[in-house]
Simulated assay, not measured.
Amino acid sequence: MTSTDAPKPGKNKTQARSAARLYAVQALFQMEHSDQSFDKVIAEFENHRFGAIYEEGELAEGDSKLFRKLLKDAVNHQAKIDQMTDRALVAKWPIARIDPTLRALFRAAGAEFVESDTPVKVVINEYVDIARAFFPEGKEPSFVNAVLDHMAREAKPEAF
């Protein structure tokens, strides 16, 4: 491998953090729909999904620490995050009425807004990319961008 082929510093860490966010959305969705416990879902993801190889290709190895923190914070602050999300949504569409994948996404992103020092723009961009992965043909990524912008302004007004 030549120096031009070497991975860029931080690239793998960035990919691992992006994978952890995606896995957190999937895990929150799974927890809501299967009534699986926090510990059981974490064990399943860390043992069977991180770095797994599927027909579509290899999934990135996730940042286990970030994944665990996002799940813990989303669960522990769910009421606050859901209230922030509700305030960002139109009155006739409370969080309980939106797509469950989007609900999981808003909870994971909300956990980062509430409990991390990750820059707001990074959080929004990461979760809009996740929305694009789940809804490649839809308007959901734009919707996610607008809702997350509103949530960020409430959670981190100093960033604006």
Rank of each mutant, 00 (worst) to 15 (best):
M1Q: 10
M1S: 15
T2E: 13
S3Q: 12
T4R: 13
T4A: 11
D5H: 12
A6D: 02
A6E: 07
P7R: 06
P7W: 02
N12S: 14
N12G: 09
K13V: 10
K13E: 13
T14E: 15
T14K: 14
T14M: 11
T14H: 13
Q15D: 14
Q15E: 14
Q15S: 12
A19H: 03
A19S: 12
A20L: 08
R21S: 15
L22Q: 03
V25H: 01
Q26M: 14
A27I: 09
A27H: 08
A27G: 09
F29D: 04
F29Q: 03
Q30A: 14
Q30C: 12
E32N: 13
H33Q: 13
D35M: 09
D35F: 09
Q36P: 03
S37H: 05
S37D: 07
S37R: 07
S37I: 04
F38G: 04
D39K: 11
D39Y: 10
K40H: 10
I42H: 00
A43N: 11
E44L: 10
F45D: 02
F45Y: 15
N47M: 06
H48P: 01
G51I: 06
A52H: 05
I53H: 11
I53E: 14
Y54T: 10
E56N: 07
G57W: 04
E61H: 13
S64V: 09
L66T: 08
F67M: 02
R68T: 04
K69L: 12
L71F: 06
K72F: 12
K72C: 04
A74D: 01
A74C: 01
V75A: 08
V75M: 07
N76V: 05
N76E: 15
H77S: 09
H77R: 06
H77Q: 10
Q78C: 05
Q78W: 03
Q78D: 05
A79S: 13
A79V: 09
Q83C: 06
M84A: 07
T85N: 05
D86I: 06
D86Q: 11
R87P: 00
A88N: 11
A88S: 15
A88V: 09
A91Y: 08
A91I: 09
K92I: 10
W93T: 14
W93I: 08
P94T: 07
P94R: 08
I95G: 11
A96I: 13
I98T: 00
P100V: 01
P100I: 02
T101P: 01
T101D: 02
T101C: 01
T101F: 06
A104K: 04
A104W: 04
L105D: 06
F106V: 07
R107C: 03
A108W: 13
A109C: 03
G110Y: 12
G110N: 10
A111R: 02
V114Q: 12
S116G: 03
D117E: 08
D117G: 02
P119G: 09
V120W: 01
K121P: 02
K121I: 12
K121Q: 12
I124S: 00
I124H: 00
N125A: 15
E126W: 03
I130F: 05
A133S: 14
A133R: 13
F135R: 01
F135N: 00
P136W: 10
E137I: 08
E137P: 04
G138P: 02
G138M: 03
E140Y: 06
V144Q: 01
A146Q: 14
V147Y: 08
L148N: 01
D149C: 13
R153I: 06
K156W: 05
K156Q: 12
P157F: 04
P157Q: 03
E158G: 12
E158T: 11
